[in-house]
Computed example of a mutant assay.
Amino acid sequence: MDHRAILQNIRNFIVDLDGVVYLLHTPIRENVDFLRFARLRGFRIAFLSNNTFLPREGYAAKLNTMGVEAKVEEIFTSAFVTAGYLQREKPGGRVYAIGEEGLKEELRRAGLKLLPRFSPRGADFVVVGLDRRFTFQKMKTGLDFLLKGAQLVGTNPDPTYPTDSGVIPGAGAIIASLERASGQRARIIGKPSPDILLFLLETLRFRREETAVIGDRIDTDVLLGKNCGVLTILVLTGVAKREEVLSSPVQPDIVVHTLQELREFL
């Protein structure tokens, strides 16, 4: 495979965070070094994550601390995009959120009203992200709102989440419990839904034919690129392993062990 020919028209990289730039708090140095190199070569870089732990400025600060240049306007999370979509769909809508502070902060900033666990008023949406403090009570409250007419919205379908100490359950596992209990299929805004990537491309004015998506998951990152007609690069520093690539019906355009392998082709 001629990687140089495949990459010759690429001017923009859209980069996943977890499993590509870092594992929770630990930078993946080879990939960080490549991103510095790409910036110096004049490539435009944006970051696209299904993670909802932090608001966008939190991720910008985290990346810069790790030596990765990043501006807030270059960071797109499933929480940020989900909040924007729901505010446009129902301005000031009522939301019961299952997730961490990054998700809740983005929902508040968008102008949506967050509901407490006990609320006499129904919710318009039950929004679910990864919640490391998920409990049976949160599931029950979410189910109560869903059975009263709320719409189930997932920030992302990731079944697992990679950390520096191993894999933990992801937002998709929580969403699945509420889907099963309520009988309602969640609307997913984050990867691999085209909505999140199309929003980024439009906002930053990236042309599809000049853009590559870099990620560590076939079922979200690679599938997202395929859904939108964008070049895909799978890096094996996170969730996906070589065996999965060989057996997957969804095939990335390029597979590398670390992003440093791309340097000679740019």
Rank of each mutant, 00 (worst) to 15 (best):
L204H: 13
A150R: 10
G149H: 06
G102I: 00
T163M: 01
F13I: 01
K90W: 12
A110T: 00
T258V: 06
I188L: 08
R117I: 15
K104E: 07
R36L: 11
E244K: 03
L234M: 12
L103F: 10
G229P: 02
E89T: 08
R208T: 03
D221Q: 12
N156C: 05
V255Y: 06
G58E: 00
A46G: 11
E89I: 10
I189R: 04
V222K: 02
E179L: 08
R4L: 12
P192E: 02
L114W: 08
L86A: 06
L152I: 07
E243Q: 04
N64K: 14
P116V: 01
T258C: 05
L231T: 15
S182Y: 05
R117H: 15
L107E: 05
S49F: 04
I188M: 07
R207V: 10
V256Q: 13
K90C: 15
L262I: 12
A176Q: 03
P194Y: 01
G84W: 05
I98S: 04
A240T: 15
V68D: 00
G170C: 09
G172F: 04
T26Q: 14
V81L: 01
I45Y: 01
T203N: 06
A176G: 03
L23H: 01
L17H: 07
E261Q: 15
G102F: 00
D158S: 04
G142N: 07
K71Y: 09
D195G: 13
K148F: 12
E30A: 15
L130H: 06
T65L: 15
L197P: 00
L17M: 14
D253V: 03
R132G: 13
S193N: 10
F43S: 04
L178M: 10
I174G: 02
E105A: 06
V239W: 02
E202F: 03
S165F: 10
G67V: 07
L266T: 08
R4H: 13
S248C: 07
D124K: 08
K113E: 15
F47K: 02
P194R: 04
L146S: 05
F13C: 01
R217I: 04
L24K: 08
V95R: 12
V95T: 13
F13K: 00
V72Y: 04
S182G: 12
I214D: 06
I196R: 02
S165G: 09
R121G: 14
L147N: 13
D253E: 04
L114Q: 08
